[in-house]
């Protein structure tokens, strides 16, 4: 969705009278109801799923608390290898890096 069409969409939904979304709903429903059956790109048709994190990452669920502790500590220990590289960086908060900033 381009920035202009996004802005148009927001303006459309924000206008008085849009509290009743019937016209928009009517426009959507025929498309939405047909999605699963006719849209070849929809998930379920080709079995593909968007991947965000790896299976190894998500496998933390299967660990006991003690196993998680061990894996966590081990990861933290290995991550020390980048301390010099990221010594000036911030991962949280309102700063990006230590001064000087110039």
């Amino acid at each position: 969705m381009s920035s202009n069409s996004h802005d148009d969409a927001v303006r459309r939904l924000s206008q008085p009278g849009m509290a009743d979304l019937l016209p928009v709903r009517q426009a959507f429903l025929p498309v939405i109801r047909n999605v699963g059956g006719h849209n070849a790109n929809c998930c379920g048709m080709n079995g593909m799923r968007d991947e965000f994190l790896s299976e190894e990452d998500l496998d933390l669920k299967s660990l006991t608390d003690e196993e998680l502790d061990r894996v966590w500590m081990s990861w933290l220990e290995q991550a020390q290898a980048t301390n010099e590289e990221d010594r000036r960086e911030y991962s949280h908060g309102v700063f990006l890096r230590e001064p000087p900033w110039a």
């Binding site: 990452d57 998500l58 933390l60 998680l68 966590w72 990861w75 933290l76 020390q80 991962s91």
Partner: peptide
């Protein structure tokens, strides 16, 4: 990590 999603931060 406590949500059991991933370990990706050392801070």
């Amino acid at each position: 990590v406590l949500h059991r999603l991933a370990i990706m931060s050392k801070d």
